[in-house]
Design a protein around this nucleic acid. Structure first.
Length: 575
RNA sequence: GCGCCCUUAGCUCAGUUGGAUAGAGCAUCGGUUUUCUAAACCGAGGGUCAGAGGUUCGAAUCCUCUAGGGCGCGCCA
Protein backbone atom coordinates (compact mmCIF):
# COMPACT_ATOMS: atom_id res chain seq x y z
CA UNK A 1 0.00 0.00 0.00
CA UNK A 2 1.19 3.47 -0.80
CA UNK A 3 -0.56 6.07 1.26
CA UNK A 4 0.06 8.91 -1.15
CA UNK A 5 -1.06 7.00 -4.22
CA UNK A 6 -4.14 5.85 -2.32
CA UNK A 7 -5.15 9.41 -1.60
CA UNK A 8 -4.24 10.48 -5.09
CA UNK A 9 -6.81 8.00 -6.40
CA UNK A 10 -9.38 8.98 -3.79
CA UNK A 11 -8.97 12.67 -4.48
CA UNK A 12 -9.20 12.11 -8.21
CA UNK A 13 -12.48 10.27 -7.74
CA UNK A 14 -13.77 13.12 -5.64
CA UNK A 15 -12.75 15.63 -8.32
CA UNK A 16 -14.64 13.62 -10.95
CA UNK A 17 -17.69 13.62 -8.72
CA UNK A 18 -17.44 17.39 -8.33
CA UNK A 19 -17.19 17.76 -12.07
CA UNK A 20 -20.38 15.79 -12.56
CA UNK A 21 -22.14 18.12 -10.16
CA UNK A 22 -20.79 21.04 -12.20
CA UNK A 23 -18.87 22.39 -9.26
CA UNK A 24 -15.54 22.38 -11.11
CA UNK A 25 -14.18 21.75 -14.59
CA UNK A 26 -11.46 19.18 -15.07
CA UNK A 27 -8.65 19.49 -17.62
CA UNK A 28 -8.18 16.64 -20.09
CA UNK A 29 -4.96 15.41 -18.57
CA UNK A 30 -5.39 14.50 -14.93
CA UNK A 31 -2.08 12.72 -14.53
CA UNK A 32 -0.30 15.80 -13.33
CA UNK A 33 -2.50 15.93 -10.24
CA UNK A 34 -0.42 14.35 -7.53
CA UNK A 35 -0.47 13.80 -3.81
CA UNK A 36 2.92 13.81 -2.19
CA UNK A 37 4.94 14.62 0.85
CA UNK A 38 5.35 18.38 1.32
CA UNK A 39 8.81 19.91 1.72
CA UNK A 40 10.63 19.50 5.03
CA UNK A 41 9.64 22.81 6.53
CA UNK A 42 5.94 22.05 6.17
CA UNK A 43 4.13 20.38 9.04
CA UNK A 44 1.43 18.84 6.89
CA UNK A 45 1.63 15.16 6.09
CA UNK A 46 0.32 15.32 2.56
CA UNK A 47 0.12 17.94 -0.07
CA UNK A 48 -1.89 18.09 -3.28
CA UNK A 49 -1.35 20.33 -6.28
CA UNK A 50 -4.90 20.02 -7.67
CA UNK A 51 -5.75 23.69 -7.16
CA UNK A 52 -2.84 24.69 -9.36
CA UNK A 53 -3.67 22.24 -12.12
CA UNK A 54 -7.37 23.13 -12.13
CA UNK A 55 -6.84 26.87 -12.20
CA UNK A 56 -6.69 27.19 -15.95
CA UNK A 57 -9.64 24.97 -16.83
CA UNK A 58 -11.78 26.90 -14.37
CA UNK A 59 -10.43 30.33 -15.24
CA UNK A 60 -9.91 31.04 -11.61
CA UNK A 61 -6.94 31.75 -9.42
CA UNK A 62 -5.50 28.71 -7.63
CA UNK A 63 -6.47 30.23 -4.30
CA UNK A 64 -10.14 30.40 -5.32
CA UNK A 65 -10.16 26.77 -6.47
CA UNK A 66 -8.37 25.84 -3.29
CA UNK A 67 -11.20 27.29 -1.20
CA UNK A 68 -13.73 25.12 -3.03
CA UNK A 69 -11.60 22.00 -2.83
CA UNK A 70 -10.77 22.54 0.81
CA UNK A 71 -14.47 22.48 1.73
CA UNK A 72 -15.10 19.26 -0.16
CA UNK A 73 -11.94 17.59 1.09
CA UNK A 74 -12.99 18.18 4.68
CA UNK A 75 -16.54 16.98 4.00
CA UNK A 76 -15.42 13.81 2.28
CA UNK A 77 -12.42 12.76 4.31
CA UNK A 78 -13.28 12.53 7.94
CA UNK A 79 -9.69 11.74 8.83
CA UNK A 80 -8.52 15.16 7.59
CA UNK A 81 -8.20 17.54 10.47
CA UNK A 82 -7.28 20.61 8.51
CA UNK A 83 -6.50 21.68 4.95
CA UNK A 84 -4.33 24.75 4.35
CA UNK A 85 -3.71 26.64 1.16
CA UNK A 86 -0.09 27.45 0.36
CA UNK A 87 1.23 29.50 -2.52
CA UNK A 88 1.48 29.00 -5.43
CA UNK A 89 -1.33 26.47 -5.28
CA UNK A 90 -0.80 23.61 -2.88
CA UNK A 91 -3.29 22.16 -0.47
CA UNK A 92 -1.54 20.98 2.67
CA UNK A 93 -3.41 18.25 4.44
CA UNK A 94 -3.25 17.56 8.18
CA UNK A 95 -4.62 14.38 9.73
CA UNK A 96 -6.38 13.69 12.99
CA UNK A 97 -4.53 12.24 15.96
CA UNK A 98 -4.97 8.57 15.29
CA UNK A 99 -3.35 8.84 11.87
CA UNK A 100 0.03 7.55 13.00
CA UNK A 101 -1.46 4.75 15.02
CA UNK A 102 -3.38 3.45 12.01
CA UNK A 103 -0.48 3.67 9.64
CA UNK A 104 2.21 2.40 11.96
CA UNK A 105 0.07 -0.60 12.74
CA UNK A 106 -0.23 -1.20 9.03
CA UNK A 107 3.51 -0.86 8.39
CA UNK A 108 4.37 -3.23 11.21
CA UNK A 109 1.77 -5.70 10.01
CA UNK A 110 3.23 -5.67 6.52
CA UNK A 111 6.76 -6.06 7.84
CA UNK A 112 9.04 -7.48 5.15
CA UNK A 113 6.49 -6.54 2.48
CA UNK A 114 6.20 -2.88 3.50
CA UNK A 115 6.90 -0.70 0.52
CA UNK A 116 6.28 -3.39 -2.09
CA UNK A 117 4.39 -2.12 -5.07
CA UNK A 118 2.42 -5.05 -6.39
CA UNK A 119 0.62 -3.22 -9.16
CA UNK A 120 1.75 -5.46 -12.00
CA UNK A 121 3.05 -8.97 -11.72
CA UNK A 122 5.22 -9.74 -14.69
CA UNK A 123 7.67 -12.34 -15.84
CA UNK A 124 11.09 -10.78 -16.32
CA UNK A 125 14.26 -12.03 -17.86
CA UNK A 126 17.28 -10.05 -16.80
CA UNK A 127 20.60 -10.76 -18.43
CA UNK A 128 23.67 -9.32 -16.77
CA UNK A 129 27.43 -9.71 -16.49
CA UNK A 130 27.72 -12.14 -19.45
CA UNK A 131 31.48 -11.54 -19.46
CA UNK A 132 33.55 -13.72 -21.75
CA UNK A 133 34.63 -16.89 -19.97
CA UNK A 134 38.27 -16.08 -20.41
CA UNK A 135 39.19 -15.05 -16.89
CA UNK A 136 38.07 -13.46 -13.62
CA UNK A 137 35.54 -10.65 -13.47
CA UNK A 138 36.98 -7.16 -13.35
CA UNK A 139 35.63 -4.09 -11.65
CA UNK A 140 33.39 -3.06 -14.54
CA UNK A 141 31.67 -6.46 -14.58
CA UNK A 142 31.34 -6.12 -10.87
CA UNK A 143 29.21 -3.02 -11.17
CA UNK A 144 26.97 -4.66 -13.74
CA UNK A 145 26.66 -7.75 -11.57
CA UNK A 146 25.59 -5.79 -8.52
CA UNK A 147 23.19 -3.49 -10.36
CA UNK A 148 21.63 -6.44 -12.16
CA UNK A 149 21.24 -8.30 -8.90
CA UNK A 150 19.75 -5.33 -7.08
CA UNK A 151 17.27 -4.68 -9.90
CA UNK A 152 16.28 -8.34 -9.71
CA UNK A 153 15.76 -8.08 -5.96
CA UNK A 154 13.74 -4.93 -6.42
CA UNK A 155 11.45 -6.46 -9.03
CA UNK A 156 11.06 -9.58 -6.91
CA UNK A 157 10.20 -7.46 -3.89
CA UNK A 158 7.34 -6.08 -5.96
CA UNK A 159 6.02 -9.54 -6.64
CA UNK A 160 7.35 -10.13 -10.13
CA UNK A 161 8.89 -13.37 -11.32
CA UNK A 162 12.54 -12.97 -12.30
CA UNK A 163 14.97 -15.14 -14.19
CA UNK A 164 18.55 -13.94 -13.76
CA UNK A 165 20.56 -15.04 -16.71
CA UNK A 166 24.18 -15.19 -17.81
CA UNK A 167 25.02 -15.61 -21.48
CA UNK A 168 28.30 -17.47 -21.86
CA UNK A 169 30.13 -16.51 -25.04
CA UNK A 170 32.05 -19.73 -25.41
CA UNK A 171 32.40 -19.52 -29.18
CA UNK A 172 34.46 -17.41 -31.54
CA UNK A 173 37.99 -16.18 -31.97
CA UNK A 174 38.37 -14.81 -28.44
CA UNK A 175 37.85 -18.29 -27.11
CA UNK A 176 40.39 -19.70 -29.54
CA UNK A 177 42.90 -17.14 -28.29
CA UNK A 178 42.06 -18.01 -24.73
CA UNK A 179 42.48 -21.74 -25.23
CA UNK A 180 45.75 -21.18 -27.03
CA UNK A 181 46.93 -18.99 -24.16
CA UNK A 182 46.23 -21.83 -21.76
CA UNK A 183 48.09 -24.18 -24.08
CA UNK A 184 51.13 -21.90 -24.16
CA UNK A 185 51.16 -21.70 -20.36
CA UNK A 186 51.03 -25.50 -20.20
CA UNK A 187 54.02 -25.74 -22.52
CA UNK A 188 55.74 -23.11 -20.44
CA UNK A 189 55.39 -25.36 -17.42
CA UNK A 190 56.06 -28.72 -19.02
CA UNK A 191 58.64 -27.81 -21.64
CA UNK A 192 59.92 -24.46 -20.44
CA UNK A 193 58.75 -22.78 -23.67
CA UNK A 194 58.52 -18.99 -23.44
CA UNK A 195 55.01 -17.53 -23.48
CA UNK A 196 54.67 -15.73 -26.85
CA UNK A 197 54.53 -11.96 -26.91
CA UNK A 198 51.32 -11.79 -28.90
CA UNK A 199 48.69 -9.10 -28.40
CA UNK A 200 45.86 -11.52 -29.10
CA UNK A 201 46.81 -13.80 -26.25
CA UNK A 202 45.79 -13.51 -22.62
CA UNK A 203 48.89 -12.83 -20.52
CA UNK A 204 47.14 -12.76 -17.13
CA UNK A 205 48.58 -14.78 -14.30
CA UNK A 206 45.27 -16.60 -13.80
CA UNK A 207 45.93 -18.44 -17.09
CA UNK A 208 48.89 -20.08 -15.37
CA UNK A 209 46.49 -21.20 -12.65
CA UNK A 210 44.16 -22.71 -15.23
CA UNK A 211 47.11 -24.46 -16.90
CA UNK A 212 48.28 -25.93 -13.60
CA UNK A 213 44.82 -27.17 -12.81
CA UNK A 214 44.51 -28.90 -16.16
CA UNK A 215 47.87 -30.57 -15.66
CA UNK A 216 46.78 -31.71 -12.24
CA UNK A 217 43.48 -33.12 -13.54
CA UNK A 218 45.42 -35.30 -15.99
CA UNK A 219 42.46 -35.70 -18.32
CA UNK A 220 44.77 -34.85 -21.18
CA UNK A 221 47.91 -36.98 -21.32
CA UNK A 222 49.80 -35.77 -24.33
CA UNK A 223 50.00 -32.07 -25.25
CA UNK A 224 52.18 -32.40 -28.32
CA UNK A 225 49.41 -32.12 -30.91
CA UNK A 226 47.38 -28.97 -30.30
CA UNK A 227 44.85 -29.65 -33.06
CA UNK A 228 44.09 -33.08 -31.73
CA UNK A 229 43.53 -32.06 -28.10
CA UNK A 230 41.85 -28.73 -28.89
CA UNK A 231 38.28 -29.80 -28.14
CA UNK A 232 39.19 -31.43 -24.85
CA UNK A 233 41.42 -28.58 -23.81
CA UNK A 234 38.80 -25.98 -24.73
CA UNK A 235 36.13 -27.77 -22.76
CA UNK A 236 38.30 -28.05 -19.69
CA UNK A 237 39.67 -24.50 -19.85
CA UNK A 238 36.22 -23.02 -20.30
CA UNK A 239 34.86 -25.14 -17.51
CA UNK A 240 37.50 -23.79 -15.14
CA UNK A 241 37.02 -20.22 -16.35
CA UNK A 242 33.25 -20.42 -15.77
CA UNK A 243 33.90 -21.78 -12.30
CA UNK A 244 36.21 -18.83 -11.58
CA UNK A 245 33.47 -16.46 -12.69
CA UNK A 246 30.84 -18.23 -10.60
CA UNK A 247 33.11 -17.95 -7.58
CA UNK A 248 33.64 -14.25 -8.22
CA UNK A 249 29.90 -13.74 -8.49
CA UNK A 250 29.23 -15.65 -5.33
CA UNK A 251 31.80 -13.51 -3.50
CA UNK A 252 29.68 -10.54 -4.55
CA UNK A 253 26.53 -12.30 -3.37
CA UNK A 254 25.24 -12.74 -6.89
CA UNK A 255 23.71 -15.96 -8.12
CA UNK A 256 22.28 -16.38 -11.60
CA UNK A 257 19.36 -18.73 -12.17
CA UNK A 258 20.46 -19.77 -15.60
CA UNK A 259 23.62 -19.99 -17.70
CA UNK A 260 23.01 -20.08 -21.45
CA UNK A 261 25.91 -21.24 -23.62
CA UNK A 262 26.44 -19.70 -27.01
CA UNK A 263 28.07 -22.89 -28.29
CA UNK A 264 24.87 -24.80 -27.55
CA UNK A 265 22.75 -22.40 -29.58
CA UNK A 266 25.08 -22.93 -32.50
CA UNK A 267 25.21 -26.69 -32.01
CA UNK A 268 21.42 -26.89 -32.03
CA UNK A 269 21.30 -24.86 -35.24
CA UNK A 270 19.19 -22.29 -33.44
CA UNK A 271 21.13 -19.50 -35.10
CA UNK A 272 20.38 -20.84 -38.57
CA UNK A 273 16.71 -21.30 -37.71
CA UNK A 274 16.39 -17.80 -36.34
CA UNK A 275 18.12 -16.21 -39.30
CA UNK A 276 15.88 -18.20 -41.65
CA UNK A 277 12.87 -16.86 -39.84
CA UNK A 278 14.10 -13.30 -40.18
CA UNK A 279 14.86 -13.94 -43.83
CA UNK A 280 11.26 -14.93 -44.43
CA UNK A 281 10.21 -11.63 -42.88
CA UNK A 282 12.56 -9.83 -45.27
CA UNK A 283 14.88 -8.58 -42.56
CA UNK A 284 17.90 -10.39 -43.98
CA UNK A 285 19.67 -9.80 -47.30
CA UNK A 286 23.04 -10.14 -49.00
CA UNK A 287 24.73 -6.83 -49.56
CA UNK A 288 27.71 -4.57 -49.04
CA UNK A 289 28.40 -2.12 -46.27
CA UNK A 290 30.16 1.21 -46.56
CA UNK A 291 33.60 1.47 -45.04
CA UNK A 292 33.45 2.50 -41.38
CA UNK A 293 34.00 6.12 -40.48
CA UNK A 294 36.43 7.44 -37.97
CA UNK A 295 39.98 6.12 -37.98
CA UNK A 296 41.12 5.01 -41.39
CA UNK A 297 41.87 1.33 -41.63
CA UNK A 298 43.96 -0.52 -44.18
CA UNK A 299 42.36 -3.88 -43.85
CA UNK A 300 38.84 -2.86 -44.85
CA UNK A 301 37.59 -5.19 -47.51
CA UNK A 302 34.47 -4.48 -49.44
CA UNK A 303 32.53 -7.69 -49.79
CA UNK A 304 29.10 -9.20 -50.12
CA UNK A 305 27.81 -10.48 -46.80
CA UNK A 306 24.67 -11.56 -45.03
CA UNK A 307 23.15 -8.52 -43.35
CA UNK A 308 20.35 -7.81 -40.90
CA UNK A 309 18.20 -4.83 -41.84
CA UNK A 310 18.47 -3.07 -38.50
CA UNK A 311 18.01 0.29 -40.23
CA UNK A 312 14.32 -0.65 -40.38
CA UNK A 313 14.38 -0.09 -36.63
CA UNK A 314 16.33 3.16 -36.15
CA UNK A 315 19.81 1.65 -36.27
CA UNK A 316 22.43 3.61 -38.23
CA UNK A 317 23.64 0.84 -40.51
CA UNK A 318 22.65 -2.73 -41.30
CA UNK A 319 24.66 -5.29 -39.37
CA UNK A 320 26.65 -8.33 -40.58
CA UNK A 321 25.53 -11.81 -39.61
CA UNK A 322 28.38 -13.82 -41.08
CA UNK A 323 32.14 -13.40 -41.09
CA UNK A 324 34.44 -13.86 -44.10
CA UNK A 325 34.95 -17.51 -43.17
CA UNK A 326 31.12 -17.93 -43.21
CA UNK A 327 30.91 -18.53 -39.46
CA UNK A 328 28.30 -16.59 -37.49
CA UNK A 329 29.10 -13.23 -36.00
CA UNK A 330 28.56 -12.63 -32.31
CA UNK A 331 25.51 -10.62 -33.26
CA UNK A 332 23.96 -13.50 -35.20
CA UNK A 333 24.13 -15.88 -32.27
CA UNK A 334 22.95 -13.17 -29.90
CA UNK A 335 19.87 -12.75 -32.09
CA UNK A 336 19.25 -16.47 -31.70
CA UNK A 337 19.70 -16.14 -27.95
CA UNK A 338 17.13 -13.36 -27.81
CA UNK A 339 14.76 -15.39 -29.98
CA UNK A 340 15.14 -18.08 -27.38
CA UNK A 341 14.27 -15.61 -24.62
CA UNK A 342 11.18 -14.52 -26.54
CA UNK A 343 10.12 -18.15 -26.95
CA UNK A 344 10.26 -18.56 -23.21
CA UNK A 345 7.40 -16.07 -22.91
CA UNK A 346 8.85 -13.37 -20.75
CA UNK A 347 6.87 -10.13 -20.53
CA UNK A 348 9.95 -7.98 -20.26
CA UNK A 349 13.57 -8.51 -21.27
CA UNK A 350 16.26 -6.51 -19.54
CA UNK A 351 19.94 -6.39 -20.51
CA UNK A 352 22.52 -4.77 -18.28
CA UNK A 353 25.45 -3.70 -20.42
CA UNK A 354 28.80 -2.09 -19.79
CA UNK A 355 29.49 1.35 -21.24
CA UNK A 356 31.69 -0.18 -23.94
CA UNK A 357 28.65 -1.94 -25.39
CA UNK A 358 26.50 1.17 -25.81
CA UNK A 359 26.82 0.97 -29.57
CA UNK A 360 25.32 -2.49 -29.52
CA UNK A 361 21.93 -1.50 -28.07
CA UNK A 362 20.30 -0.30 -31.26
CA UNK A 363 21.00 -3.44 -33.23
CA UNK A 364 19.96 -5.91 -30.55
CA UNK A 365 16.80 -3.91 -29.79
CA UNK A 366 16.12 -3.93 -33.53
CA UNK A 367 16.50 -7.69 -33.58
CA UNK A 368 14.10 -8.13 -30.67
CA UNK A 369 11.53 -5.89 -32.35
CA UNK A 370 11.82 -7.88 -35.57
CA UNK A 371 11.60 -11.23 -33.81
CA UNK A 372 8.61 -10.33 -31.69
CA UNK A 373 6.63 -8.19 -34.13
CA UNK A 374 7.37 -5.18 -31.94
CA UNK A 375 5.58 -6.87 -29.07
CA UNK A 376 8.46 -7.41 -26.68
CA UNK A 377 10.32 -4.45 -25.39
CA UNK A 378 13.96 -4.96 -24.63
CA UNK A 379 15.19 -2.59 -21.95
CA UNK A 380 18.92 -1.98 -22.04
CA UNK A 381 20.56 -0.43 -19.01
CA UNK A 382 24.09 0.83 -19.37
CA UNK A 383 26.50 0.94 -16.48
CA UNK A 384 29.20 3.55 -16.83
CA UNK A 385 32.85 3.09 -15.93
CA UNK A 386 34.25 2.62 -12.47
CA UNK A 387 37.33 4.65 -11.65
CA UNK A 388 39.45 3.02 -9.00
CA UNK A 389 41.24 5.34 -6.63
CA UNK A 390 43.69 4.92 -3.81
CA UNK A 391 44.18 7.93 -1.56
CA UNK A 392 42.38 9.99 -4.16
CA UNK A 393 44.83 8.97 -6.91
CA UNK A 394 43.74 6.93 -9.92
CA UNK A 395 44.83 3.35 -9.94
CA UNK A 396 47.22 2.30 -12.67
CA UNK A 397 46.51 -0.95 -14.43
CA UNK A 398 48.07 -2.53 -17.47
CA UNK A 399 45.79 -4.45 -19.74
CA UNK A 400 48.86 -5.55 -21.65
CA UNK A 401 50.23 -7.40 -18.66
CA UNK A 402 46.76 -8.54 -17.68
CA UNK A 403 47.17 -7.22 -14.14
CA UNK A 404 43.70 -5.78 -13.68
CA UNK A 405 41.88 -5.55 -10.37
CA UNK A 406 39.31 -8.30 -10.13
CA UNK A 407 35.94 -8.38 -8.44
CA UNK A 408 37.43 -10.82 -5.96
CA UNK A 409 40.22 -8.37 -5.08
CA UNK A 410 37.61 -5.76 -4.26
CA UNK A 411 35.59 -8.06 -2.04
CA UNK A 412 38.69 -9.39 -0.29
CA UNK A 413 39.90 -5.92 0.51
CA UNK A 414 36.73 -4.06 1.47
CA UNK A 415 34.04 -6.70 1.96
CA UNK A 416 30.91 -7.60 0.07
CA UNK A 417 28.61 -5.17 1.86
CA UNK A 418 30.74 -2.13 1.11
CA UNK A 419 31.33 -3.07 -2.50
CA UNK A 420 27.61 -3.54 -3.10
CA UNK A 421 26.48 -0.42 -1.29
CA UNK A 422 29.05 1.87 -2.91
CA UNK A 423 28.39 0.49 -6.38
CA UNK A 424 24.67 1.03 -5.88
CA UNK A 425 24.99 4.45 -4.32
CA UNK A 426 25.37 6.22 -7.66
CA UNK A 427 23.19 6.39 -10.72
CA UNK A 428 24.28 3.62 -13.08
CA UNK A 429 24.44 6.20 -15.84
CA UNK A 430 27.15 8.21 -14.15
CA UNK A 431 30.79 7.28 -13.78
CA UNK A 432 31.68 6.00 -10.37
CA UNK A 433 34.70 6.77 -8.24
CA UNK A 434 35.60 3.86 -6.04
CA UNK A 435 38.14 4.95 -3.44
CA UNK A 436 39.61 2.00 -1.57
CA UNK A 437 40.59 4.08 1.42
CA UNK A 438 37.20 5.67 1.95
CA UNK A 439 35.40 2.39 1.52
CA UNK A 440 37.41 0.68 4.24
CA UNK A 441 36.84 3.55 6.64
CA UNK A 442 34.36 2.90 9.40
CA UNK A 443 32.76 6.31 9.56
CA UNK A 444 30.04 8.47 8.18
CA UNK A 445 32.12 8.86 5.07
CA UNK A 446 31.41 5.25 4.38
CA UNK A 447 27.62 5.22 4.00
CA UNK A 448 27.20 1.48 4.36
CA UNK A 449 28.46 1.59 7.96
CA UNK A 450 26.31 4.58 8.66
CA UNK A 451 23.13 2.77 7.64
CA UNK A 452 24.12 -0.48 9.34
CA UNK A 453 25.03 1.41 12.46
CA UNK A 454 21.53 2.85 12.71
CA UNK A 455 20.08 -0.63 12.52
CA UNK A 456 22.49 -1.85 15.18
CA UNK A 457 21.55 1.07 17.43
CA UNK A 458 17.86 0.25 17.13
CA UNK A 459 18.66 -3.32 18.06
CA UNK A 460 20.68 -2.20 21.02
CA UNK A 461 17.63 -0.39 22.37
CA UNK A 462 15.52 -3.51 22.07
CA UNK A 463 18.29 -5.53 23.67
CA UNK A 464 18.56 -3.15 26.58
CA UNK A 465 14.82 -3.49 27.15
CA UNK A 466 15.03 -7.28 26.88
CA UNK A 467 12.67 -7.19 23.93
CA UNK A 468 12.88 -9.16 20.74
CA UNK A 469 12.73 -6.90 17.71
CA UNK A 470 11.33 -9.73 15.61
CA UNK A 471 8.36 -10.25 17.91
CA UNK A 472 5.07 -8.45 17.66
CA UNK A 473 4.51 -5.39 19.74
CA UNK A 474 1.03 -4.80 20.96
CA UNK A 475 0.16 -1.17 21.22
CA UNK A 476 -3.50 -1.35 20.28
CA UNK A 477 -4.52 0.16 23.56
CA UNK A 478 -1.86 2.83 23.62
CA UNK A 479 -2.50 6.32 22.49
CA UNK A 480 0.48 7.10 20.28
CA UNK A 481 2.04 10.53 20.54
CA UNK A 482 5.06 11.85 18.73
CA UNK A 483 7.10 15.01 18.93
CA UNK A 484 8.08 16.95 15.83
CA UNK A 485 11.45 15.25 15.45
CA UNK A 486 9.83 11.86 15.57
CA UNK A 487 7.24 12.93 13.06
CA UNK A 488 10.02 13.98 10.75
CA UNK A 489 11.38 10.45 10.88
CA UNK A 490 7.92 8.96 10.43
CA UNK A 491 7.22 11.10 7.39
CA UNK A 492 10.39 9.78 5.83
CA UNK A 493 9.23 6.26 6.64
CA UNK A 494 6.01 6.98 4.73
CA UNK A 495 8.10 7.93 1.74
CA UNK A 496 9.58 4.45 1.42
CA UNK A 497 6.91 2.96 -0.88
CA UNK A 498 7.35 5.85 -3.25
CA UNK A 499 11.09 5.30 -3.32
CA UNK A 500 10.47 1.67 -4.24
CA UNK A 501 7.97 2.58 -6.95
CA UNK A 502 10.25 5.08 -8.64
CA UNK A 503 13.30 2.85 -8.33
CA UNK A 504 11.52 -0.06 -9.94
CA UNK A 505 9.69 1.79 -12.70
CA UNK A 506 12.89 3.51 -13.71
CA UNK A 507 15.08 0.51 -12.86
CA UNK A 508 17.26 2.82 -10.81
CA UNK A 509 18.28 1.04 -7.64
CA UNK A 510 20.61 3.86 -6.60
CA UNK A 511 17.62 5.72 -5.19
CA UNK A 512 17.40 3.19 -2.38
CA UNK A 513 20.82 3.74 -0.75
CA UNK A 514 20.34 7.48 -1.15
CA UNK A 515 16.97 7.24 0.58
CA UNK A 516 18.26 4.98 3.35
CA UNK A 517 21.10 7.36 4.05
CA UNK A 518 18.69 10.28 4.42
CA UNK A 519 16.41 8.21 6.60
CA UNK A 520 19.07 7.12 9.06
CA UNK A 521 20.56 10.62 9.19
CA UNK A 522 17.31 11.74 10.83
CA UNK A 523 17.52 8.88 13.28
CA UNK A 524 21.16 9.49 14.24
CA UNK A 525 20.42 13.17 14.75
CA UNK A 526 17.50 12.37 17.00
CA UNK A 527 19.51 9.86 18.95
CA UNK A 528 22.10 12.46 19.76
CA UNK A 529 19.50 14.89 21.01
CA UNK A 530 18.96 12.47 23.86
CA UNK A 531 22.43 13.31 25.11
CA UNK A 532 21.46 16.89 25.67
CA UNK A 533 17.86 16.46 26.71
CA UNK A 534 16.62 13.36 28.48
CA UNK A 535 13.17 13.88 27.05
CA UNK A 536 14.47 12.63 23.72
CA UNK A 537 16.08 9.47 25.00
CA UNK A 538 14.53 6.16 24.16
CA UNK A 539 15.38 4.58 27.49
CA UNK A 540 15.19 6.10 30.96
CA UNK A 541 15.82 3.97 34.08
CA UNK A 542 15.88 0.82 32.00
CA UNK A 543 12.40 1.46 30.68
CA UNK A 544 11.12 2.76 27.39
CA UNK A 545 10.62 6.48 27.72
CA UNK A 546 7.44 6.52 25.69
CA UNK A 547 5.89 3.40 24.30
CA UNK A 548 5.02 5.17 21.05
CA UNK A 549 8.70 5.17 20.29
CA UNK A 550 8.83 1.39 20.15
CA UNK A 551 6.38 1.53 17.28
CA UNK A 552 8.52 4.15 15.58
CA UNK A 553 11.70 2.12 16.01
CA UNK A 554 10.03 -1.01 14.80
CA UNK A 555 8.76 0.71 11.63
CA UNK A 556 12.15 2.28 11.07
CA UNK A 557 13.92 -1.04 11.42
CA UNK A 558 11.51 -2.61 8.93
CA UNK A 559 12.30 0.00 6.31
CA UNK A 560 16.07 -0.26 6.82
CA UNK A 561 15.93 -4.01 6.62
CA UNK A 562 13.68 -4.08 3.54
CA UNK A 563 15.89 -1.57 1.78
CA UNK A 564 19.13 -3.32 2.63
CA UNK A 565 17.71 -6.66 1.54
CA UNK A 566 16.99 -5.23 -1.89
CA UNK A 567 20.57 -3.98 -2.04
CA UNK A 568 21.83 -7.33 -0.84
CA UNK A 569 23.66 -5.73 2.05
CA UNK A 570 23.59 -7.26 5.52
CA UNK A 571 22.05 -5.64 8.61
CA UNK A 572 23.99 -6.82 11.66
CA UNK A 573 22.17 -6.50 14.97
CA UNK A 574 25.33 -5.57 16.77
CA UNK A 575 28.43 -3.81 15.52
C1' G B 1 32.23 12.84 -38.83
C1' C B 2 28.10 9.91 -36.36
C1' G B 3 25.57 7.68 -31.92
C1' C B 4 24.85 7.20 -26.52
C1' C B 5 26.00 9.16 -21.57
C1' C B 6 27.63 13.20 -18.49
C1' U B 7 28.20 18.84 -16.95
C1' U B 8 24.34 21.11 -10.09
C1' A B 9 28.70 24.36 -3.85
C1' G B 10 36.22 24.15 -3.72
C1' C B 11 35.72 18.23 -4.34
C1' U B 12 32.29 13.67 -4.88
C1' C B 13 27.28 13.49 -5.96
C1' A B 14 21.39 13.35 -4.90
C1' G B 15 17.34 15.94 -6.82
C1' U B 16 10.29 12.27 -7.28
C1' U B 17 7.37 10.94 -15.17
C1' G B 18 7.77 20.06 -14.58
C1' G B 19 5.97 22.32 -8.40
C1' A B 20 6.87 25.50 -2.71
C1' U B 21 13.28 29.15 -0.47
C1' A B 22 17.89 23.70 -5.47
C1' G B 23 19.81 19.37 -1.14
C1' A B 24 23.64 15.72 1.17
C1' G B 25 28.66 14.15 2.24
C1' C B 26 33.82 15.60 2.08
C1' A B 27 36.95 19.81 2.81
C1' U B 28 37.15 24.75 5.89
C1' C B 29 35.77 27.26 10.57
C1' G B 30 33.25 26.95 15.51
C1' G B 31 30.79 23.78 19.15
C1' U B 32 28.66 18.91 21.65
C1' U B 33 30.03 13.04 25.27
C1' U B 34 29.12 11.76 33.94
C1' U B 35 26.42 7.46 26.70
C1' C B 36 19.99 3.97 24.89
C1' U B 37 26.76 2.20 20.74
C1' A B 38 31.07 9.36 19.65
C1' A B 39 31.76 4.13 14.06
C1' A B 40 27.86 9.88 16.33
C1' C B 41 25.64 14.94 16.50
C1' C B 42 24.82 20.52 16.08
C1' G B 43 26.00 25.29 13.81
C1' A B 44 28.41 28.68 9.99
C1' G B 45 30.12 30.02 5.29
C1' G B 46 29.90 28.22 0.23
C1' G B 47 25.21 28.20 -6.17
C1' U B 48 24.71 32.41 -13.10
C1' C B 49 22.06 24.17 -11.88
C1' A B 50 28.08 24.61 -18.38
C1' G B 51 26.11 28.82 -21.84
C1' A B 52 22.11 30.89 -25.08
C1' G B 53 17.24 30.65 -26.79
C1' G B 54 12.28 28.29 -26.55
C1' U B 55 7.68 25.66 -24.43
C1' U B 56 4.15 27.63 -19.60
C1' C B 57 0.91 29.77 -14.28
C1' G B 58 5.86 27.45 -13.07
C1' A B 59 12.10 24.55 -15.80
C1' A B 60 18.09 21.79 -12.74
C1' U B 61 14.05 18.64 -14.94
C1' C B 62 10.96 19.03 -21.56
C1' C B 63 12.67 21.01 -26.87
C1' U B 64 16.61 23.47 -30.09
C1' C B 65 21.49 25.26 -30.63
C1' U B 66 26.60 26.03 -28.59
C1' A B 67 30.85 24.67 -25.46
C1' G B 68 33.51 20.96 -22.46
C1' G B 69 34.36 15.65 -20.69
C1' G B 70 33.60 10.11 -21.15
C1' C B 71 32.39 5.68 -24.04
C1' G B 72 31.47 3.43 -28.65
C1' C B 73 31.61 3.36 -34.15
C1' G B 74 35.60 -3.24 -39.18
C1' C B 75 33.26 -10.09 -40.66
C1' C B 76 35.81 -8.33 -31.49
C1' A B 77 32.80 -10.44 -28.09
Amino acid sequence: MNLFLDYQVKILLLLKKLEKKNIINLPSNLRSIVVELPPKDQDAIMSCNAAMILAKANQKAPSEIAEILKKHFLNNFNEFEKVDFAKPGFLNIFFRNDFWKIHLRDIIKQGPAYGANKISKKKYNIEFVSANPTGPLHVGHCRGAIIGDAISNLLKFNGNVITKEYYVNDYGSQIKNFVFSVYCRILEITENKTFPNNLNLYPGIYIVGIAKKILKNKTIKNFSNYERIYNKLAKESLGIAVEIIKNDLSALGVKHDNFVYESKLIKNALVQKTINKLEKQNFVYRGKLLAPKGELTNDWKDRQQLLFKSTDFTDDIDRPLTKADQSWTYFASDIAYHANKIDRKFNVLINILGADHTGYIKRISAAVSALSNNKINLICKVTQLVKLLRKGEPFKMSKRKGDYITAKDLVDEVGKDSVRFIMLNRSNEAELDFDFDKVTEKSKENPVFYVQYAYARINSIFRSLHLDIEKKINFNKEHLTFNKYEIEILKKVLEWPKCVTISSTKLEPHRIPVYLYDLVTLFHAYWNMGKINEEYRFIINNKINNKSRLALLKALSIVIKNGMSILGVSTPKRM
